[in-house]
Amino acid sequence: MDMDLITNILFAMVRTGTPLLLVALGELVCEKSGVLNLGQEGMMLMGAVIGFIAALTTGSLIFGVIMSLLVGMAMAMLFGLLAIQLRANQVATGLALTIFGAGLSAYVGTDYIGQALAGFQPMLIPLLSDIPILGKALFSQDILVYCSLGIALAIWLFFRFSRPGLMVKAIGESPYSATAVGLPVIMTRWLALLFGGAMAGLGGAYLSLAYTPLWAEGMTAGRGWIALALVVFASWKVERVLLGAWLFGLASIMHLVLQGMGASISSNLLATLPYLATIVVLVLLSSNQSRSRLLAPMSLGKPYHPAG
């Protein structure tokens, strides 16, 4: 393989992994606080369609991004009303949110199918983008990719060094102990949930404004679900989420590359590669059972009933 091919593969790997990374990071924070929101796919689709419509009608990509953040948060708010305030079952609520988001986005977006938009263009970072191989993959991307890296770093620092990060972890482990210690459980869960919603909206917007700047019904193609699985297999660790997202990107690209090279494997089989490869690698990483059990937020998905 020549250098150009490798460079291009890495470049595409980061691009393909980014929407996954954005959504998974949001869900990671949300799950750390003990809230399991399975509505990622629905939130992503809403973010994608609203972001696209907003950008198309106003001509401002940034406005599109802002709208996708807001709509993601609005969807998360819906989830929070049911699952946090009314203590509904989180799994059922999340599934409902996905179905709702898929339906609503299809309805809202009917008139916009097939319309084209000039999406986010790559922003070369001087000097750094000249580095061979890695320069193109990491420093010649669009602004949303840089954002995703910045957010990943911020979340890593947040959980590693900040007191609010510690609070989120504690609340996800035992909301009752947290109450006893005097931490604001409900409020923290709301904030984590809204952050997750915004990130899912952003992930959707990346698809419709940068990756393939158009709107198509169901264009997320299960990425919301992959993101959910990614968080679990990454043992709720930021660096592994990043690794997993890019791995998924790499495998997605490889399936195209292999096809291009004329590999005599069914393309349908090759299309399963990204899913398979991502899960296999992350399962291997999290195979130390006794440790990984301690990493999972212990109260994940359990409604919290404050003492009366």
Partner: peptide, 18 residues
């Protein structure tokens, strides 16, 4: 005990500063 098992001693104690 209202301690958080996955956190260290010092993290647990830090959390009660509010």
């Amino acid at each position: 005990f209202s301690l958080f098992e996955t956190l260290t001693v010092v993290e647990n104690i830090a959390l009660s500063f509010y």
